[in-house]
């Protein structure tokens, strides 16, 4: 594998990782600060993609890029204010069930409005060209655009949380909500805003990715589980953790696809041989690239066993 190709693979891994980050950074805030295991998080991502499609059809992509996430954010904040907040007193199970139901409601609503088949959401013409060429393979301009936007988003969130008073209040509301309330801050409103902001981030991820991966009603279901892997691996409530975990998962998944090694090659290397017709060969002949879809979940299990608080988490899951 030449160095140039490795660079290409790393770029792709980074892109996928940053996409996961955008998708899950909102959830890590919500999960970490409010303790709400939001099953419907990926649904907000889906709404973002559909709104992105609808607005770019009717107006243009750039307006969609700004307003679709805002709409999703407002929607999220409303759901928190009029739904989740009332249920909060019944504990986490009630909240969990609420978001679980929400997931199905959103999926059905999307199907009612936009139909069950994928909608033709297109990459904007102006960004639809190959940007750079590395040893015979080109990297699309739109991918670079997505990469840059997600990096900017990370820097923005990180700065707000670490350097501003708002970040301070948010962090304080997480650990000592009563004290923050006693100091005169409106804690429920902080929660509402954080929830809305988290949803808006997922919505933005949807606008940026919907035209690449395809916008259809099962996209939330397909991406739902991986989001939790990122949040748990990175550590609850840690934006830095979400970033690192996303990139690790992105790189590992992209790299494992490129590898043709299987257990047989290791066994042969050690000087043993497996009968091709034996049952055990079914398992030992699985290549790393075939296993790549489950790699993130293996990572999840390892992290939960070895370090339950995740890479950068301050408390256990």
């Amino acid at each position: 594998m030449s160095l140039e190709v490795l660079v290409f693979i790393i770029f792709n891994g980074l892109l996928y990782g940053m996409f996961l980050f955008m998708l899950s950074s909102g959830l890590t805030l919500i999960f970490g600060m409010m303790g709400i295991l939001n099953f419907a998080h990926a649904s907000f991502f889906m709404i973002g993609a559909y709104l992105g499609y609808q607005i770019s059809e009717n107006i243009n992509f750039w307006i969609a890029l700004i307003f679709a996430p805002m709409l999703v954010g407002i929607m999220g904040a409303m759901i928190e204010k009029y739904g989740l907040r009332n249920i909060h007193k019944y504990g986490h199970i009630a909240e969990l069930l609420f978001t679980f139901g929400l997931f199905y409601i959103i999926e059905e609503m999307v199907q009612l409005i936009w139909g069950k088949t994928p909608v033709p959401y297109k990459v904007p013409e102006i960004l639809n060209f190959p940007l750079i060429e590395i040893s015979g393979m080109s990297y699309p301009a739109y991918s670079m655009f997505r990469l840059v936007i997600s990096l900017l988003i990370f820097l923005a969130i990180y700065r707000v949380l670490a350097k501003t008073k708002t970040g301070l209040i948010i962090k304080a509301s997480l650990t000592n909500p009563n004290m923050v309330a006693a100091l005169g801050h409106n804690v429920p409103r902080v929660f509402s805003n954080v929830f809305g902001f988290g949803c808006a981030l997922a919505g933005l991820a949807g606008v940026l990715a919907g035209n690449v991966i395809g916008t259809e009603p099962s996209m939330a279901l397909l991406l739902g589980p991986i989001v939790f892997v990122v949040v748990v691996t990175g550590g609850l409530g840690s934006i830095k953790g979400a970033l690192v975990a996303s990139i690790i998962i992105g790189l590992i998944q992209t790299l494992t696809i490129s590898m043709e090694y299987d257990l047989n090659s290791l066994i042969n290397y050690l000087g043993f041989q497996i009968d091709i017709n034996s049952t055990i060969n079914h398992f030992t002949s699985l290549t790393l690239s075939q296993l790549s879809p489950i790699v993130p979940y293996i990572l999840l299990i390892i992290v939960l066993i070895a370090r339950p608080r995740g890479l950068f988490g301050k408390r256990d899951v």
Binding site: I213, G214, I257, S258, P293
Partner: peptide, 22 residues
């Protein structure tokens, strides 16, 4: 010789394309 996870689970085929190129 590649067998991929079927039915729309894979969103990004770029890694596979890289492999084919290689």
């Amino acid at each position: 010789d590649e067998l991929i996870q079927p039915f729309g689970k894979i969103q990004d085929f770029t890694p596979y394309v890289t492999k084919i190129k290689l």
